[in-house]
């Protein structure tokens, strides 16, 4: 149903890996104008929802870390999840991706319930995530990191692994796919390096590229820009936009409002576990409740409203 909206993964490499600012200007935004009719209130309905969360709560001891009443996520758009430290963003992410189980509540992906579905099964359902603390697999080469993401590799079955001929054909395909993705992310020259030798930003790139090997519908990025140097940030932003251009849905957690404004189509604001506001980036920057949530709770917040506040 959704496949027709999405460019084939390998065909979309036209932008090239370098992805300088000039190139990014040209990246197509398939959801432009979709949010014009959406009401900017928490829990608002979207024209084409891919992911829905209803009454999701998670408690740690007496503390309610997450208490989300309703969240609809628009298909094919970049949705930012922002909020002060301790707002429950990462915990909410964990709940959505099966890395933690909610005390109550329902999550649906493409209209199908994914309550209690183990995290590893979500990749098959088209949802993949990255982590706040980048999880590059240090003592695997960059190429092996990439290949790990591939689906349908019969050689990952114990018995079939024993017979090389059962998996070498698929392995060759996977190898080609991995190298093409590496080329797109401008990392071909690092293919045979151990991932542990890469810089923080390069690891972020590997992690994102690796997640694309699963050919996901929904990409969940937990602070993709954290600890990345400014030069690489632009490149990363370009890659995120590229995901949207391919028709994928992106949800990401971020602190830096500049980034959020630059790439997101829709912003969801969390504070103390609840969603306190939703809206377009411009509307959110002007929202008094959001400003209070940030400045009221954390003066040292990285969120910078600049001239907009």
């Amino acid at each position: 149903m959704t496949d027709d909206k999405r460019a084939p993964i390998l065909g979309a490499t036209a932008g090239g890996g370098g992805a300088g600012a000039a190139v990014q200007e040209n990246i197509h935004n398939p959801v432009e104008g979709v949010f014009d009719t959406v009401e900017a209130v928490p829990g608002s309905k979207k024209p084409d929802t891919i992911l829905t969360a209803q009454n999701v709560t998670r408690r740690f001891g007496g503390l309610k870390a997450v208490d989300v009443e309703t969240l609809h996520v628009q298909r094919g758009a970049i949705t930012a999840l922002i909020g002060p430290n301790g707002a429950g963003k990462t915990t909410f992410f964990n709940l959505l991706t099966g890395f933690d189980n909610p005390d109550e509540g329902h999550v649906e992906l493409n209209g199908v319930s994914i309550d209690g579905v183990a995290s590893h099964k979500l990749a098959a359902k088209g949802m993949v995530r990255t982590f706040q603390l980048t999880k590059a697999l240090s003592r695997l080469t960059v190429l092996d990191n990439m290949k790990l993401g591939a689906k349908n590799q019969p050689g990952e079955n114990f018995l079939k692994a024993l017979v090389s001929s059962m998996w070498t054909d698929r392995e060759a395909e996977v190898d080609a796919q991995a190298r093409e993705l590496l080329a797109r992310f401008n990392m071909t020259h690092m293919a045979d390096e151990f991932a542990g030798t890469l810089s923080g930003g390069q690891r972020k790139l590997v992690e994102m590229a690796r997640s694309l090997m699963t050919d996901p519908e929904v990409v969940m990025l937990d602070e993709p820009m954290a600890g990345v140097n400014p030069a690489l940030t632009q490149s990363l932003l370009g890659h995120v936009k590229q995901l949207r251009a391919e028709g994928r849905t992106v949800i990401f957690v971020e602190h830096d409002m500049d980034m959020v404004r630059e790439i997101s189509d829709w912003v969801v604001v969390m504070a103390e576990g609840e969603i306190i506001a939703e809206g377009t980036p411009d509307a959110i920057s002007a929202n008094q409740a959001v400003v209070d949530a940030y400045l009221g709770s954390h003066h040292d917040s990285e969120l910078d409203f600049g001239e907009d506040s």
Binding site: T91, N94, D100
Partner: peptide
């Protein structure tokens, strides 16, 4: 009860 009889449940992540 991996946190033991008197331990508190740990928060993940």
């Amino acid at each position: 009860r991996p946190q033991g009889l008197l331990g508190k449940a740990e928060r993940i992540g």
